[in-house]
Design a protein around this nucleic acid. Structure first.
Lengths: 193, 193, 193, 193
DNA sequence: TATGAATGAGACTTCATTCAT
DNA sequence: TATGAATGAAGTCTCATTCAT
């Protein structure tokens, strides 16, 4: 197992760990190297700079998240079930990848003027998959006729809000039950009937 | 006007501007001083360090936000109307305080190991006002009988998601209409009836 | 005296000393700072980089040399006398400014691709003054009718060759006598009559 | 041809090329290896360090130059003719070995405290052949009775000055004519008769 | 013998903070 | 109180050299 992982991946993995714990600016290259159990200079054999390492790591992390969370909900099943799967996937991911979750949802610091746009667009690009999903559900009459973009934002917002207690507070909770509850709220609203 | 503002506030204001634009680590004390039109050393007459200045600024910014946004919705009026006011206040604030908005919702970078908890708790504390509000609405039967904490998270999540397009993309939009739409979605859900 | 010198000049002076002794690449900023009796960071208050410091120092050194050596020989006196003054000035400068001499005539290492041209042209520009001098002497019949450029090169070559023994070998010699001898050789050649 | 050259020589040749273009400090071992078409580690099979490689290369280059330029002029022919041959050889060498020329006459950077003396003495040693030549010409009455050392310096100086335009500026010129002109100036001086 | 992935010492440079004025 | 010149700790990145293959 440990020799089936490429050095490139090993570095990205260690970088994710350290970036998640310390944030971009407080993470030191030496610390990432130590975490990977390699020499400082070795990182530069695979990545040209700290910034590039961060970008590569972020790109990979977002991919991992979206592959796990969004793609799973692409099957042709009722929307309500899909959203529940989405939330369930999200919670599962949060629990299993605490470091990555922190990076994806928290570490949005301004590292670099250009990186700001890169990060924002990277996220929007990934979200467009979700938006398409919503749009088709609206077209097929499963969802109310509302701005798909708005709904996407709301769902993303909810996801974005529901990782902190899990990851930061280490709360015990029932994934199944929580995702059902939240799905219900998103689908039917909070108003008493 | 400009001489009615204390030097302390002047510095905080300048700090907010620079922190919002550059992020904590890329903001330089010299730049904040220049923005305030004072000498670099003068900042240290009012704040003991960059970190303390950031904390003071953050605290004040969050207060400003919650006072504006939450407090306005505390009157004893129907919950639906309140949420709409909350959203309207939020959007209004976003438009009028683009810099502060960025700081409050974006610049959550990990500045310092201890600051992480401080920032998280500061936010939770402010949110508790909202949670009380929700709880009482549930008690009075206006809202469905669900975990008030969950609802708070969802609403905060939605707010947290709905600033970026406004502030970062400079989108034109109708505040009144948008807040009504989002309120409707939160209250009644997204499912077609 | 020591407080009449600006910090800028103090740094250049120290830089000249260290660059002369160690060469560009072996000179360390910390060493230059130590030589100047200031902190490492202070250098960067006056010069943006090591390279810029080197260029500034070099520019100033060449100016000092040419002002001392060439300008003195501009008076309207016989060419033979002028060349002798030139040589005398050169030797005088070598003796009095051993460090600068080394920099000007030796430390022509390739520091930077662009700097190479900069250095070469800087030198050529200064030499053009000498070339004009030669040209007018030819026009007025004092010198044989030969390519002024060639003569300039020869004289510069001789100057360039006649610093090393003085500076590197610390040889004792009679400036007056040596400059007369060399002038004689340049004017009348080496061939027996 | 290419397999008649030893790997040692191949490396020295490549080193000369790279050192000439970049200077000692900017030349990278990897680049020299690439130029030679071999692995980085292989260089260390033949040379113990970058410094030793440079010294070996320099020694060989100077030998090549002096063999070509000085030795050719050792035959027992009139001094004037000899000097002309010397100059002609020099110019020929410059044109044919632009890289080596640069190294020999330009790249005199201070690589290492000890190397400084080594380089200076290496040059002086080679020059002693020329000095002996001059001395005998003086003894035989062909040249004026002047310090042979001085004349050597002057001739070396002229040679040292007359490579840059050829190598750096890529000037077109007539080797035959130029060497005759310069010989004339050295022999008869620049003064109008 | 040949290789090139890995290494880590060391250099430049930044910038929060100090302190003499 | 206000200032900004001076500082030096600390971090990124380079590259000669090593050594397992």
């Amino acid at each position: 197992m440990s020799d089936s992982i490429s050095k490139q991946d090993l570095i990205i993995e260690s970088a994710a760990k350290v970036f998640a714990k310390k944030g971009y600016h407080n993470a030191k290259m030496g610390e990432i190297a130590a975490e990977a159990g390699i020499g400082k200079g070795t990182i530069y054999e695979y990545f040209s700079s700290k910034l590039q390492l961060f970008q590569e790591m972020m790109d990979q992390s977002l991919n991992k998240y979206f592959n796990k969370v969004v793609i799973d909900s692409l099957e042709k099943i009722p929307m309500e079930k899909r959203i529940q799967m989405l939330l369930q996937g999200h919670f599962q991911f949060c629990v299993e990848n605490r470091e990555l979750t922190r990076i994806i949802f928290w570490d949005t610091e301004i590292i670099d003027e250009e990186l700001k746009d890169w990060a924002y667009n990277l996220r929007k690009e990934k979200e467009s998959v979700m938006q398409d999903l919503i749009q088709s559900a609206i077209s097929e009459g499963e969802l109310r006729d509302i701005d798909a973009n708005l709904v996407t934002q709301i769902i993303t917002g909810v996801l974005g809000a529901m990782w902190a207690p899990i990851v930061l507070e280490n709360k015990e909770f029932n994934i199944q039950k929580l995702s059902q509850e939240v799905t219900d709220l998103i689908m039917n609203g909070i108003k008493a009937k």
